[in-house]
């Protein structure tokens, strides 16, 4: 085996580190995308007995977005085991307490339910903002594409672009703007 083929063999079985920007992304749709990377099923060499999962670094988890009124309607259940120990936490309350928890719980629920689940979840690194330790960032070699476009706020457009954007209609000639 030539040196090039040998390196290709090592690289095939090596662990990749992927970066995923969670800004304005739905955590439920994102988990569907992240889970195959964690358990390795996105690779052609995948086998259930083959430990080929990759690392995924999720940044900006504080800026995830939920559709409609799901921040108020989605509920996370917990029970202490004691009588009356049940709690129901709304998604926005959980996100306020820990901005990485919603993504971690969603990915955990979508991973296959076996003894490998905890180890695969350990390869998911979530950060609430874009400050990632160098020890993690130095491994990252690829980036995952975002699932939905990040909307742009009206006050973030330059004034020139606002003025020169095509107009749908013209005001009546005696219309005074307040």
């Amino acid at each position: 085996m030539s040196a090039a083929r040998r390196v290709q063999q090592w690289a095939t079985f090596g662990r990749m580190w992927y970066l995923y920007d969670g800004k304005w992304q739905n955590p439920l749709e994102s988990a569907d995308k992240i889970v195959p990377y964690l358990d390795g099923s996105h690779k052609p060499i995948f086998h259930p007995l083959n430990d080929s999962g990759d690392h995924v670094v999720v940044i900006n988890s504080r800026d995830i977005a939920l559709p409609g009124d799901e921040w108020e309607k989605r509920v996370y259940f917990h029970h202490t085991g004691y009588a009356g120990g049940a709690t129901w936490t709304l998604a926005w309350q959980l996100h306020e307490a820990d901005p990485t928890m919603i993504i971690r719980k969603t990915v955990y629920n979508k991973l296959s339910k076996n003894l490998l689940r905890r180890g695969r979840l350990a390869r998911l690194h979530i950060f609430p903002d874009d400050k990632v330790p160098d020890s993690i960032l130095k491994n990252v070699s690829a980036q995952m594409r975002q699932l939905r476009p990040v909307p742009r706020r009206l006050d973030h457009y330059p004034q020139e672009e606002l003025e020169n954007f095509p107009k749908i209609f013209d005001w009546p000639k005696d219309h005074v703007i307040n």
Partner: peptide, 30 residues
């Protein structure tokens, strides 16, 4: 969704991240 915070009454908070409760988090619509 907080996409037009500059078009708002003068008494509003403008910055979407300073809104009350669940309103401060990003949301999108279908």
């Amino acid at each position: 969704a907080g996409l037009m915070p500059n078009l708002a009454p003068a008494t509003s908070k403008r910055d979407p991240s300073r809104r009350y409760g669940s309103k401060k988090f990003n949301r999108y619509f279908d």
